[in-house]
Amino acid sequence: MSMIDNVQNLAREWLDSKEVDAIFGLKEQDGYIAPYLFTDVGELSCLVISNQYRLCYTCRPAKENILSLMLQTEPNAKIGVVVRGCEERALIELAKRGQVDLKRIKILGVACSKEDAEECRCEKPYPGNLVLGEKVEGVSGDENVNALLSKSLPERRAFWKHEFSKCIKCYGCRNVCPMCICKDCKMEQELYTETGWLPPGIPMFHFIRFYHISDRCIGCGECEKACPVDIPLLTIFKLLQKDVKDLFDYEAGMDVEQEEPLLTTLDETPMREEVMDVGV
C-alpha cells in the first residue's frame, strides 16, 4: 500500500471512530492542491500529501492562525491534522505562544520524501511525532548560506542592496509566515518604514522580520517561496537558526515546554560564555 493510501485509511479510521471531528489536510481538485477541512469520509479520496502548502498559516485579513480560527469557531471540536516536520514545529511554537491548543489537535505526522526535503532545503523533513512514512535524512549545508558567508562586508552590502531594491512591498513574506502572528505589525508602521514608497526601507523593512522571527523560525522557507522577486530570505533565517542554537542552545519547534530565549532571563536561558563578556 502506498503512503497516501495509509494516510487516507488512518484519517478515515479517526473520523469513523469519532476520535476527531474533522481532518485538516490538503485536497486535490482539478489538478490544484489546497488546504481543506475534511468532515465527510467520502471526500478522503481527494486527500493528498504535498510540499506545496503548509497547513499552518495566518489568515489575512483575519490575522489569525487558521487552526486557531477553527478551534475558536468550533469550541468543542477536535481536529486531526496531517502534518509534516515543519508544520509540527510551527504548531509547537504557536502553542508556546498560546495560539493553538495542542490538546485539541491530533497530529497525523508524515515524513517527507527525499525530493521534497531537497526542494525545501529542509534540515529535518519529518515530525517528532512520526505516524506514517519513513524518515529521510535532512539536507545539510546550504549553498546560499555558504555563498553569503564567503562574501566580504562590502560584497554583502552590494548583494542585499540588489536584492532588497527589487522588493515590491507585497508583505507576502510576512503573510505566509506561520510565525508572524502579531495583529499590529511593525512592518506596517511609519515609525520604521516610510509608507507608500518602493522599495521599502533598506534594510529596515526586512530586518524587522529577520529579528522578530530569529528565535522562532522553523525553517519552512515559505517566505522565500512567496517572494515575487526571489529575495533569498531563507539564507538569513538559516544562519539565525544556527546562531540561536549556538548562543542559547535553543531550537525552535522542538519542545513545547522550552521557552523562547529572547523572552527569558539569563537564569532561565543562559547565553554561552563567550558572548557574555560584554562590558564586564
Binding site: 512591498k169 507585497c170 508583505y171 515575487p228
Partner: peptide, 20 residues
C-alpha cells in the same frame, strides 16, 4: 483570507500587495 496558488502559471505562489 487570500492564499497564493503555487501551481499557477503566472503567479507561482506569489502575489502583489493588492492581490494579498
Amino acid at each position: 483570507g487570500v492564499m497564493p496558488c503555487k501551481s499557477h502559471t503566472v503567479s507561482q505562489g506569489k502575489l502583489c500587495v493588492k492581490g494579498w
